[in-house]
């Protein structure tokens, strides 16, 4: 999105879709805790502070209406300033649905963490419903010495339903250097072979965990395979990616939880 669009009034109901933003800024309060000087949502994107634990501030994304629908453009920005600890979750799964107009939808997530900050981005699943067409762009920029735990889970269709079209790109930069850039494209109209033996092979849930810990620079986690559907993979940088595929959301979550546990406590 260009700067021109960025400067527009926050909430614009463009023809065929809703434009909505949510912003969270977490700052170390100087007394061992984390404050939230910015906590803003609008329209379908509401944000609530929930009970934190210890020095961590917790925020919940609350969907005030279902979406994104075709033509919608949502942007969520979360920043953990140096030394802050922020955990962002969501109250429910996000359901991508077709809109009244045959336009695609877009969901941008921008995550930033400063030196010594700890950012946990742990939303519930994204469900790609039949007929929907959604592009998700997740961009993470970390300072050297920041920590990250990010989980993404994509579920292709509601129970027994054909999926919609879903494209999800995830990039992670540490100290300006890109350590992960990957895109998953699936559903009707996606490039050929997405559901074949090299793609998802009939699995209807796919997920990623990205774990960034400064300690991984000296001691990267060992690569390992967990069952048939998941692998822990140290990246070229102080980070690891867990990729998992499963028949459904429940089994996917179990695989990802197991993989995270295998990385030990930091």
């Amino acid at each position: 999105m260009g700067t021109g669009a960025d400067r527009r009034v926050d909430r614009v109901t463009a023809p065929g879709g809703v434009r909505a933003r949510a912003r969270v800024l977490a700052r170390a309060d100087g007394r061992g805790g984390t404050s939230l000087p910015v906590l803003e949502g609008e329209g379908p994107l509401a944000v609530r502070r929930t009970r934190g634990s210890g020095a961590e501030a917790r925020v919940m994304l609350v969907g005030a209406m279902s979406g994104p629908l075709g033509g919608d453009h949502f942007t969520v920005t979360a920043e953990a300033a140096p030394g802050a600890r922020l955990r962002v979750g969501s109250a429910a799964a996000t359901l991508a649905l077709p809109g009244q107009e045959k336009a695609d939808a877009r969901y941008d997530v921008r995550l930033t963490a400063g030196e010594g900050a700890d950012l946990r981005w742990l939303p519930e699943q994204l469900i790609s419903a039949r007929g929907s067409d959604l592009y998700v762009g997740t961009r993470v920029d970390l300072a050297a010495g920041a920590r990250l735990l990010l989980r993404e889970e994509q579920v292709l269709g509601r129970a027994g339903e054909e999926p919609g079209r879903l494209t999800s790109r995830l990039t992670v930069r540490i100290d300006g250097r890109c350590v992960l850039d990957q895109e998953l494209a699936c559903g009707p109209g996606a490039p050929g072979g997405w559901d074949g033996p090299a793609g998802l092979a009939g699995h209807r849930a796919v997920g990623q965990l990205v774990v960034v810990r400064p300690g991984f620079a000296a001691e990267p986690p060992a690569a390992r395979v967990l069952g048939e559907g998941a692998a822990v993979m140290p990246l070229a940088g102080p980070a690891a990616l867990v990729t998992a595929v499963a028949p459904d959301a429940l089994r996917l979550r179990r695989l990802l939880d197991g993989a995270l546990a295998s990385l030990g406590r930091d």
Binding site: T171, C178, Q182, A198, V206, M233
Partner: peptide, 19 residues
């Protein structure tokens, strides 16, 4: 910049390569 290069991934190829 190189960010414009495609980045499409095949989850099963990655997992199976590790195995």
């Amino acid at each position: 910049g190189t960010g414009v290069l495609p980045a499409r991934s095949a989850p099963l190829l990655e997992i199976a390569a590790e195995a």
